[in-house]
Amino acid sequence: MLHRILCAAAATGLLTTTPAMAVAAEPSAHCQDVTVPVSIAQGQPDRYRIWGRLCTPGHRPATTVQVLVPGLNYGHLYWDFPLRSRHYSYVRQANHAGYATFNLDRIGVGHSSHPSSAEATMESNAYTIHQVVAALRRGTIAGRAFGTVTLVGHSYGSKIAQLEASVYRDVDALVLTGDAHRISARAERLLAQLGQPVGQVPRLAAEVPPGDEGYVTVQDAQRPEFMYEPSDADPQVITLDIATKETNTLAELSTIGDADVPGVTAKLELPILIADGADDELACAPDATDCSSAATLAAAEQPFYPRTHVDAVVIPRAGHAINLHRNAALAYRGIIAWIDRVLG
C-alpha cells in the first residue's frame, strides 16, 4: 500500500521518490511485524487485532520498550516516516539509544482491525493499548518480555496514553507530545469544520466497514495549517504526510475529552514529560498554553498532575506534528535524554 502511495505521488509530480523512502529503523535493529489479539471492552472475546512493529536494538539487549501511539488521522508512519529516515524516524533514534520500540496502528487505523466506528472510542483505544502493554510484559509478542514500559503519544495518542495509564496503572513513564490541557478555542472551531468522509478517499474507504459513515479523515488542504510551522517544514514531507493520512471516528471525537475529566490525570503518579512545538496552533496558540519556554509549559500543566512532577520540552519553530519538522532531532534528543534520566 505504501509503495502505491509513493508511486502515485511521484506520478503527479508532487514527490520525487528516492531509495531513502523505504521505512527503516536503526540499521542494527531487529524488527518484526506482529499482531496482538485484543478485545475492545472487558469481558468481550479477542475478535480484533492491533498491528505493530517491534524493533529491538541490535547492539545491546533492551529491557525497556517504548509503545508509540499516533494521533488522529495518523498511523505508525508518524513515528517512522518513510522519507529520509535518518532525520525523521523517532524509531531509529530510540533504537540507536538502546530502547526497543513497539510502533503500532491504533484500533480502527491502518493495519489494525476496523470495528464499527461507534466502537472505536477513547476508552476502547485505551483498553486495547493496555492489552498490548500486558503482552509486552508477558513476552507474548515475538518472545520478548520487557520489565519497563513507557507510553509515548502524539496529540490524541497522548490523550489515550493519559487515560490508559490512569485507569490501568501498568506503565512506568509517560511522554505526551502535541499535548496540553488548554487548547486553542479558535483552532478547535476550525477543526470541527474540516472533516472529510472516507468515502471520498478510495484508499481509506477500502479499509473500513462498508457503509460505515462514522469513519472520517481530514481535508488535505487544511492539514499543513494545523500540523506544521511551514518555515520549519520540508514541502516533500508535507506532501507525503497528506498522501499517507489515516482515519479517525466520530466516536473518538465525541469522547476525546474523557482523558481530561477531573480525576484522570490527578491519579497519575509516574514521571511525565510534555513535549510541544513552540508554534503549535492547537496547544501553544496565544489563546491556549504558554509554550514560550519549557518552564512556562511545565508550570501550566503541573496543576493537572498533583501527584507527580511534570517536565517539559519546547521545540522552537515546530508546529503540532513535531516529528515532521526540520528540527525534529531536537525533540528526539530531549525525549530520549529525559527517558534516560527518569528510568535510569
Rank of each mutant, 00 (worst) to 15 (best):
H3K: 13
A8S: 13
A8Y: 03
A11I: 00
T12G: 14
T17M: 13
M21C: 11
V23A: 14
E26V: 01
P27A: 01
Q32K: 13
D33V: 00
T35F: 13
P37M: 04
P37V: 06
V38G: 10
P45H: 04
R49G: 00
I50P: 04
I50L: 12
H59E: 15
A62Q: 09
T64A: 03
T64V: 05
L68N: 10
H76V: 01
L77Y: 11
Y88N: 10
S89D: 06
S89W: 05
V91D: 15
R92P: 15
Q93D: 13
H96P: 01
A97I: 04
G98M: 03
G98S: 07
N103W: 01
L104K: 10
I107D: 08
S112H: 05
S113V: 06
S117T: 03
A118N: 03
A118Q: 10
E119G: 01
A120Q: 10
T121I: 11
T128P: 05
I129T: 14
G139F: 08
I141A: 07
R144K: 14
T150A: 13
L151K: 04
H154A: 03
H154M: 06
S155E: 04
K159T: 11
A161N: 14
L163Q: 12
S166L: 00
V167S: 10
Y168K: 14
L176N: 10
T177N: 11
G178Y: 06
D179Q: 15
H181A: 08
S184M: 02
A185H: 06
A185G: 05
G195A: 13
P197T: 12
V198N: 05
V198H: 05
V201D: 15
V201P: 14
P202L: 04
E207D: 15
G211T: 07
G211K: 07
Y215V: 05
E225L: 14
E229F: 06
S231K: 12
A233T: 15
D234W: 04
P235F: 08
P235A: 06
V237Y: 10
I238A: 15
I238V: 15
D241A: 13
E252R: 01
E252F: 01
L253Q: 13
T255K: 13
I256Q: 13
I256A: 12
P262A: 09
E269P: 02
L270V: 14
I272P: 03
L282W: 14
A283K: 07
C284W: 03
P286G: 10
A288W: 11
A295S: 09
A295F: 01
T296F: 09
E301K: 02
Q302V: 08
P306S: 07
D311P: 07
P316F: 01
P316S: 04
H320W: 08
I322K: 04
N327Q: 12
A331I: 05
Y332E: 02
V342P: 11
L343H: 15
